[in-house]
Every structure is written in C-alpha cells, then in structure tokens.
Amino acid sequence: MKAPLGQVIHEQATRFFPSLKTIAIRKVNRNVRLSNALRRLANRPTIDEPFIEEIDGFIPAGKRDASRAVKAVVGKGARKAANHPDVRQHVLPLLDSFPRLRAWLKGAFYASPTTASSNTSGVGNDALTSLSPRGLMIYGLLTAIEQRGAD
C-alpha cells in the first residue's frame, strides 16, 4: 500500500528542504482550515486552533538549505574521491596550496548526518528557542554580563 501523498511530500521536504519546510508548516499552522486540509492529506491529527510558533525568514532558511545541499553534494563527492588512492594522491598536493579551501572541503567531507546541526551538538540551529533551560539561563547570564560591560 502506498503512503499518502501528503506524507510523501512531507518526507521528501524534510529530506531536501528541512528549514524551508519547517517555516512553511509553521506558517500553515497559523491557519486552521488550511493546516487541517493538509494534515488530512498526510494522515496526521488535525488541530482545533491556530498553532503559533516562532518563525525565521524564508531567505535565511533557503540559504541554510542551499548550503546544506551544496555541502552534502561536495561531501559525497569528496568521500567518493577519498576511496580512490589515485585521485586522492593527485588532488591532495593541489589542495596543499589552498589551506582554507582544504579546510572547507574537510568540513564538508566530515559533515555526515552524525555531525549535522542539532540542539544537542553545540552547533547550528541558532534560534533562541532551541536552547535548553540551562542553555537559556547561561544565555541570559552572557547577555547581562555583556550589557554590564557596555554600561
């Protein structure tokens, strides 16, 4: 049996445009009728009232998704190349002359799902809402200390 169309779209969007998809869903969730229509398509529970969540802009989200996609493609290529000693031996000396490009490529190389942005990994997902209670308390302290310094 095939998965509902909405679910397929949801899964593919999660895979390819996670940031844009999150923003789109949060926008849609502000409109109960529209949200419920889509939820029925995806076999998901409906909502009774608008669901308001903080959202980022489409442009920064698009940039994040694009950057993630580029890194994923470059990383995949680099990982494939690394499996071929001949390619590796020819490319590495060339990169020695460009240490910063080498460092960027290395970042892409190791950017596997295990090092993806996470609220728990210490990088990425920079919204304040992504902080844990202790993180939020520390953020408050950092801000207060900085303000005291400025005063």
Binding site: D126, L128, I138, Y139, L142
Partner: peptide, 9 residues
C-alpha cells in the same frame, strides 16, 4: 551567544 550558551550548557 546562543551557540556559546549551548556549548557551555
């Protein structure tokens, strides 16, 4: 600061 706060936490 958000990234720093996550790391410190």
């Amino acid at each position: 600061k958000v990234r720093l706060a996550k790391c410190l936490a």
